[in-house]
Computed example of a mutant assay.
Amino acid sequence: MLIELVKVAGSPGTCVLASVRTSFGQATVRWCGSPTAEPGAYHVEWTIDEAVTWGRNAQPAAGIGPGLRSDGRDVVLRGQLNVTEDGAALLELGGTQILLDLADRLPSGAAGGWVELFIEGEKAALYPYEL
Rank of each mutant, 00 (worst) to 15 (best):
D104T: 09
E45I: 10
R73G: 01
E130L: 15
T14V: 13
L126T: 00
I98S: 07
V76W: 01
D86L: 11
G72L: 07
D49K: 12
P66G: 04
L2H: 10
T47V: 11
Q80P: 02
V20I: 15
F118S: 10
E50T: 12
V8W: 04
P107S: 04
A125K: 14
V83L: 06
G112A: 11
E50G: 02
M1W: 01
R105T: 10
G65V: 07
A61V: 03
W46Q: 04
G94K: 03
S19F: 08
Q97S: 15
V76E: 02
R30Y: 02
V16N: 05
T84P: 12
G63M: 05
L17I: 14
D86M: 09
G112R: 13
W114I: 02
A61Q: 02
Y127L: 13
G10V: 12
F24Y: 14
K7F: 14
A89V: 02
A51L: 07
W31F: 04
N57T: 14
L90C: 12
V115N: 01
D49Y: 00
V44G: 01
G25M: 07
K123W: 05
G95F: 09
T53Q: 11
I98W: 11
I119G: 05
V16W: 01
I98N: 09
A9D: 15
E122F: 11
W31H: 02
I98Q: 10
P66H: 03
E92A: 13
A51Q: 08
Y129D: 15
G33H: 00
L5E: 09
L99W: 10
S108D: 11
S19I: 06
A111F: 10
